[in-house]
Design a protein around this nucleic acid. Structure first.
Lengths: 237, 237
DNA sequence: GTTATGATATAAATCATACAAATTATATCG
DNA sequence: CGATATAATTTGTATGATTTATATCATAAC
């Protein structure tokens, strides 16, 4: 286990987050296998070159995300992968910066196909008056941007559109998806840089269905958009 | 802000988790409104009667779940609700122990309706040979338990059945649902104590469809089960 | 008057150290 | 040989000192 980790320092993020990120990396890459007891706190402190306070806060962070589990005397062990909370935006942020994680985009699209049509249907039924106003405002912005296409601006507005839909469901459990979606989008457009389709007509269909309170139509429109996204993903591979 | 929190101590769980739980409670109940700066570390230490170490680890826990956010000089503030990670089993565990959270069961059922049919469909396509064997074993157990019905045993096996389906999708993003489902199930059967329906035939339909690799049938069977669950929930209200 | 620039106060961040508690392993005694 | 006590190890908790980041305000430049 000697000198597995490199010294930390220099970056802008807080120390314990950097340490947590490094450890998460090791765990995800399988350098620290599931069930394995990781080195003791003191060992890790010297390896990372940080104090025990910082290290422990890093461990608490990873414990909260389901990656670690520690007991007095026995040590801190890596929990089985099935307990990792992939729907945590911070964890996801660390994941997608790694190699061989392209498959995550496909898996995420599969999740979206399950969840977003239902979210759109719910939004059509439960969105408040205020939320419908916000959605209307947002879509008008999208519509105008779609013509003179500017990718950076588009991503932000597109994201806000989908986020607002999740919020408008009024279902607490749909909220985390908005955040995860945000993380995935940003990373996706960052890596697969130049791409140009806005699918504005598909978005319009969703928008109009939600405004009309037609949940069945909203569901179908969302499915249509995601099928289009599917073709995009194929084109890139 | 004086004496908002009571002294901590006595329970079996680690200190920082108890503190985190108490703080989460206050936040969720709105005693600490969104955007509000919570008292400084020293204040909270004296209020809870714990050291700064314990308090800070508690804050890190809540930060990881999206409830808090802290910056030097400015303090630690409560993040807007839309960033809270409701799909974190620990957070959920704290939530459902509180009053006026019955609505969570309904919201969760709505989420299940979106996600589980797709999960079953995926499992039918992607489950490995080993996973199919495990599922077979599990269902036989369910079938035998369903006759001489013992609630405690049933819940465990039922849970394992659904968990295995999520795992069998091979999609990382479906894994967290298994854990959340587990938390919700346990709480549900704990509160609404005596109830007896196993829906064994609905489960059988799912099981057989997955084993047969018939994803469309698996999807429909799952929908049928969830509709039955819907009626159960109605009966309790 | 408006906009940069820099000092300062403050709260969190980090460090270092000490002690407590829990659990495993070992050794001792009946 | 078995049960119980003891010791050793690892995480858990506590505390004080020190460092770093940033909002605020004062000052200087434009």
């Amino acid at each position: 286990m000697s000198t597995k980790f490199t010294q930390i320092g220099g970056s802008k993020r807080s120390l314990h987050v950097q340490v947590a990120c490094e450890m998460a990396r090791s765990i995800i890459l399988g350098e620290l296998p599931e069930g394995e007891i990781i080195p003791g706190e003191m060992d890790l402190c010297t390896q990372f070159g940080v104090s025990r306070t910082a290290l422990r806060e890093a461990i608490k962070l990873l414990t909260s995300k389901g990656l670690l589990e520690s007991k007095p005397k026995v040590g801190t062990r890596v929990r089985p992968q099935q307990y990792w909370n992939y729907l945590d935006s911070q964890l996801l942020d660390w994941l997608i910066d790694m190699e061989k994680t392209a498959y995550l985009y496909e898996e995420f699209l599969a999740l979206r196909k399950a969840i977003e049509p239902e979210a759109c249907a719910s939004a059509a039924r439960f969105a408040s008056v205020e939320q419908r106003m916000q959605l209307s405002e947002l879509f008008q912005k999208m519509d105008s941007i779609a013509k003179g296409f500017d990718q950076d601006v588009w991503v932000d507005v597109d994201l806000e559109f989908h986020r607002l839909i999740f919020i408008s469901t009024g279902n607490s459990f749909f909220l985390p998806f908005a955040n995860v979606l945000s993380t995935m989008f940003k990373s996706y457009f960052h890596h697969a840089s130049k791409r140009g389709t806005t699918c504005i007509e598909e978005h319009r269909a969703i928008y109009e269905a939600i405004m009309a309170g037609n949940s069945e139509k909203a569901r179908q429109a969302s499915q249509a958009l995601l099928t289009a996204s599917d073709h995009e993903l194929e084109a890139i591979k």
